[in-house]
Amino acid sequence: MMVQATDVSDSSAIDEMVAAVVDRFGRLDVVVNNAGVHEGGAPASITDKKWRTVMSTDVDGVFYGCRAALPTLKRPGARS
Rank of each mutant, 00 (worst) to 15 (best):
C66R: 14
K50W: 00
D29Y: 07
L70S: 09
S45L: 14
F63E: 10
S12D: 09
D15R: 03
P43A: 09
I46H: 02
T47K: 11
C66I: 15
R24N: 07
G26Y: 06
E39K: 14
Y64D: 01
L73N: 05
D29N: 03
A20G: 14
H38A: 02
A35M: 05
L73D: 10
Q4I: 14
M17W: 01
V54M: 06
V30A: 09
D48I: 13
V3L: 12
M55T: 07
W51C: 10
D15G: 08
G41I: 12
R27N: 03
W51P: 11
M2R: 15
A44H: 12
V54G: 07
E16D: 14
A69T: 06
S11P: 12
H38P: 01
G36N: 03
G61K: 11
V62W: 06
D10L: 11
A5G: 06
M1L: 09
M55V: 12
D23H: 04
V62F: 07
Q4G: 08
L28G: 01
R52Q: 05
S80G: 10
V62N: 04
A13Q: 01
M2V: 15
S12K: 15
Q4H: 13
D15N: 09
T57K: 12
A19D: 01
F63Q: 00
V18N: 03
D10E: 15
P71G: 02
Q4A: 08
A5T: 02
A68V: 03
D23P: 06
V59M: 04
V59K: 01
V59P: 05
D23G: 05
L73G: 04
S45P: 05
H38V: 11
K49P: 06
P71K: 09
S11C: 13
V32C: 07
S11I: 15
A42L: 15
Y64N: 06
I46W: 00
D29L: 10
R75I: 00
K50Q: 13
T72F: 12
P43E: 10
A5S: 14
